[in-house]
Amino acid sequence: MFSYTFHWNQAFRALPQMLDGALVTLEIALLSMAIGLALAIALTLFRLSGNRALSGIATAWVEVARNTPALFQIYMAHFGLGNFGIHLSPFTALLAGIAFNNAGYLAENFRGALKAIPDTQTRAGRSLGMSSLQAFRYIVLPQMLRIAFLPATNQMVWAILMTSLGVTVSMNSDLAGVTQELNARSFRTFEFFALAAVIYYVIAKVVTLAARLLAARMFRY
């Protein structure tokens, strides 16, 4: 059945290069998560503001981010913005696409988390003389982040997996891009991509574990 000879040596020799790529992958994922988190908090504030235009923007953002493929969003950043004369590099386009996606999903997580926080708490804060922004910052936000932490770690793993889409917009410095370049040079597709899969798996597991430890450390009473 298998008349194919595996050449794992070639793949293992390229391991340092691939690990460098893994660092870029992690960097994009972390950056996109940070930007996404900030945007998601802004979107949540928009939704809470009661202003029709602002909450409309937030709803549209969330619906588009959740109902179109992540790859489409990256294409939009890479090719679509070219219409306006904005030409993003693959790195920026990938980052923008994933951050857009993250923001939508995280905002939806926050919406779920907000439901669990009684409205009376905000009112209590307001009656203690806090401004509405202070009440949000000191009463709602900490609880919201705590409830949404676990879904957010899932989103982080998603962000890591999504970075592999960069290869479709000719990104060549992240793990998938480096692997694809090595593959194009040697045609040892299975070996290189199997190694990349193992690296992705390890990164995903390490991030999940780290998030659990972090949650246990941060959220103890």
Binding site: F193, A196, A204
Partner: peptide
């Protein structure tokens, strides 16, 4: 835990092997 893109590439490589 592995990106779908990589799974597809691996699946394709495996079926051709």
């Amino acid at each position: 835990s592995v990106p779908l893109l990589i799974q597809l590439v691996l699946g394709n490589a495996l079926q051709s092997i």
